[in-house]
Design a protein around this nucleic acid. Structure first.
Length: 268
DNA sequence: ATGGTAGGTACCCTA
């Protein structure tokens, strides 16, 4: 089973690229972030026509928005409100994994970016980001167990490892790679003993990025990327990881998202 | 040290 995550940065603008990702990658489940549209404007007809009959979408006007598109039916689907807001950043589904013969959960997450100033006292957006990660940590601990087959993925907006950024030293004070964010993401990872499915395949000493800023005129030449998009699995799924792909070429497409699709294959 | 680009919306917000 192939599961893909992509911060699409407007599903309406990038519908042709979504179809291209579907054709090229052939995923069974697609998780999107920053769909930036209320549910009534989500292009569900096109998605269903492309073979994704089961959808769980949760969007709002202008900002955020998450969606799960699937060829496999959902047993349940949930919307989670975080940090006392209804800002469309977390949805989940349960589905029956045919080989595993167990229910697997997928949690699609869009963690707040956090603004520019890495100080929660003067920057409300950074404060919100830290509170969001803390709340997720408590919530997973309280509501789930490490022996359940779970997948958490999406745009986490944090690049935790030294080689998840182009320059560890130069980004230590930059939101997405500051020590406090990395520490809090580490606690979230400890909450259920999550396995980083991408680093399962890519050695930690190897540079690995999923996002390149629009503000670099030649993203490929400067290659100042960050690994902001993640796929985590709990222990029962870690031994079933079969492969991964980061579709770097998508950053070079016409009118690209600043994030590229990230996917894993699971024997479930 | 600064500002660079993109998307959605409505003349400015977020990333």
């Amino acid at each position: 089973m192939r599961i893909l995550t992509w911060n699409i940065n407007s599903v309406r603008l990038r519908l042709p690229l979504l179809k291209k990702v579907m054709r090229l990658c052939d995923p069974d489940i697609i998780c999107l972030q920053e769909t930036k549209t209320p549910d009534e404007f989500f292009p569900l007809g096109d998605v269903e026509e492309a073979g994704y009959a089961y959808t769980h979408i949760h969007g709002m006007k202008s900002y955020n928005g998450v969606a799960i598109l699937s060829r496999i039916p959902f047993a349940t689907q949930e919307i989670h409100h975080r940090v006392g807001r209804q800002d469309c950043r977390h949805v989940s589904v349960h589905f029956m994994a045919p080989k595993l013969k167990k229910t697997v959960q997928v949690h699609c997450l869009y963690i707040p970016a956090g603004g520019d100033e890495p100080d929660p006292k003067i920057n409300d957006k950074f404060d919100h980001k830290l509170k969001f990660v803390d709340e997720m940590t408590r919530w997973f601990r309280k509501n789930h167990r490490p022996d359940q087959p779970l997948i958490a993925l999406g745009d986490f907006n944090i690049a935790p490892l030294e080689h998840d950024v182009w320059s560890h030293k130069q980004l230590l004070g930059v939101v997405s790679h500051t020590p406090i964010e990395v520490e809090k993401l580490g606690r979230l990872q400890d909450s259920l003993g999550w396995h980083d499915a991408i680093r399962h395949f890519v050695p930690e000493e190897q540079k690995c990025y999923t996002w390149w800023s629009y503000r670099n005129q030649d993203w490929k030449k400067s290659n100042r990327g960050r690994r902001l998009d993640h796929i985590w699995v709990t222990k029962p799924l870690a031994s079933r990881l079969k492969g991964h792909k980061i579709l770097v070429e998508a950053r070079d497409w016409k009118q690209p998202s600043d994030h590229v699709p990230v996917m894993i294959d699971l024997a479930i």
